[in-house]
Amino acid sequence: MIKKSSKVTSEFSTSSMSDINFLLLIFFLVSTMFAVDRGLPMSLPGESSSTVKLKTEDVLKIRAFSNGAIEAKGKGPIALSEIEPFVRAKLKVNPELVIVIETHPDAEYNIMIDILDELRNADASKISLRTMKSG
């Protein structure tokens, strides 16, 4: 006859629980990413700054209309995706070029940001914002 030993403990060890908790804590600390805001920086002309006169050939005007159409001076209607190569080519000819984004007051903000984004992708540094005279 074989005697079965009944000395099996009915508890499981909880001392490693804290290690597991620490591991979880460190895992979530490392893997958590805080949302960072991204933005397109611009410098506005201040109240005191004087108006600078520019030569007509140094200015490229891009107009955004209320119906979403975009028009570039010297090219007529332009698609959003065409702006970057167009501006890049213009900047190669004249690095001093100032690009003016003229937006209609009833146009969506989105359009202005899209154009601004394209200009920044084209490495344009001199950008000016204007509002179209409505009416």
Partner: peptide, 24 residues
């Protein structure tokens, strides 16, 4: 509408807040 943004920009110019950024 861009009119709203334009109006805010005008106010910021009055306050001499030169550095702005458009959050996207």
């Amino acid at each position: 509408k861009y009119r709203l943004v334009s109006d805010i920009i005008e106010q910021l110019k009055h306050a001499n807040a030169i550095n702005v950024t458009f959050v996207s």
